[in-house]
Design a binder for these strands. Sequence first.
RNA 1: UGGGGUGUCGCCAAGCGGCAAGGCACCGGGUUUUGAUCCCGGCAUUCGUAGGUUCGAAUCCUACCACCCCAGCCA
Length: 554
Amino acid sequence: MEPTPVKNFLQSIISDDLANGRVSEVHTRFPPEPNGYLHVGHAKSIHVNFGLAEANGGCCNLRFDDTNPEKESQEFIESIQADVRWLGFQWEGEVRYASSYFQQLYDWAVYLVEQGKAYVCDLNAEQAREYRGTLTEPGRNSPHRERSVEENLDLLARMKAGEFAEGEKVLRAKIDMASPNMNLRDPIMYRIRKVAHHQTGTDWVIYPTYDYAHGQGDAIEGITHSICTLEFEDHRPLYDWFVDNLPVTSRPRQYEFGRLNLNYTVTSKRKLKQLVDDGVVHGWDDPRMPTIAGMRRRGFTPGSIRKFCEMIGVTRSDGVVDVAMLEFAIREDLNANAPRAMAVLNPLKVVLTDYPEAQVETLVAPNHPSREELGSRELPFTRELYIDADDFREEANKKYKRLVLGKRVRLRNAYVIEADSVVRDAAGEIVEVHAHTIPDTIGADPADGVKPKGVIQWVSASHGRRAEVRLYDRLFNHEAPDRGDADFLRHLNPESLRVVEQAWIEPALAGALPEQSFQFEREGYFVADRFEHSADQPVFNRTIGLRDTWNEGA
RNA sequence: UGGGGUGUCGCCAAGCGGCAAGGCACCGGGUUUUGAUCCCGGCAUUCGUAGGUUCGAAUCCUACCACCCCAGCCA
């Protein structure tokens, strides 16, 4: 795995820090809260944190920022680890938990109280809001701000002991209620929550806030560069305040970068959860979800996601990346690596009237047009086969390069055929095309010099296999589905999933393993479903269609 | 109207006083048993706007404008 050669502003900072001795090694961390599945935005953060560590010979921790037990669960802890590993990253040592530091954090809180820098406040949530002031008006000091150290110590101990009800008291840092930075108006360090924690059980009834826990967690782990997204920029003075006022043994620095926004996509955990809870999709790993698990099931590869992250770069400006870039990254990967195969999604029977009924020729087709080392597979050729209904017309203009009555077409990896007549059902619909083969056209052009105009895929009617094929498309048909406050669900693409129950696939495809990717020639890239595919009942998901520059009509 | 940020091609993004990289998308042309891939070519006299400094500015200064974030006992 080659280190990222890309240079961004974070790398510049790190290079400087290394050069001037501020740090002797690089230690980053990826700190998700286990309250949902990781999505493509997290992939960027993972790529930044692990990538920077890797590129500078350092390491990166995986730390669960589990300070709010109400929203978190073990399910998410497991899925997150699986996703990070799948992306190909390895964290330093064991998985870390902010909750492992609860005792240390508490001791430090006592320390701040002793220093007169923290106090217990009895204001309820509503009162606290009033005292906090507004963006343009300063706040007012809490009436409890000047409690004695002894009283604060006693109250804090009793908070910890469970003597007070939720919301009755909080521990606040004593900073500046008039600060223009709202985060510095005596921010809350501890709140009472009488709920069990997924890691610490019922050991605690008070839980530290993100602001109080994060920087200290970084310091405990020896994190040198604590990288987060732009919205935390205003928190940096607070981050620094805690680290500077506590006897921590290392001094981490926080840096912020712009979070990833993708058009035609929502990446807010709340909205993703809603899609799952409302049953709009079939779970966090639905192939239409921008979650890592969903993308994996859709057929994205770790390499394509990493490539995408490299393409978009890391800056402090917040833009909206075109989802076409993501699509490019996966096409590029799959074009280079996915074996080719043939499948017919909308079958139309073709009978080769000159081809003996009992005859079966075993043709050999290369698995990749330019990578011989990917081998080849056998392709049974028979009198009856299926082609895609879109690949036949009774008549067409010169631009149409497929099968036309009275004209020729190349069957991919097989013969050139010529269409002679059609068979219709009672309703007048074409149900069969009768054609004949042009002799000696395997690997050769017709001897009479009349070359076919195009090439189409096919599957033997007698030797082909049936498969379910799920055609996925973007979940939203609006560029910015969550812009504004209106319900983002109204922008759902009604055709984000189309299931083809009975597609025909060439026999070799039945041996596909779950998560194996293929290019179904002329159709797109497909992956055998991670959970529901089997040799008996093959299921393929369309990852992404082939680039299509054909303008019919033009 | 407080504080913190960001503004370079439709999108992402280099550039850090010497005369606008690259990628995506798009548009031409060539090769091709995938209308794919691949290959070649095109695509910002201009860097949010207006002034100023300078021989010279996207890069420095000033003012203005636009957009994003902050008033959770969420992260």
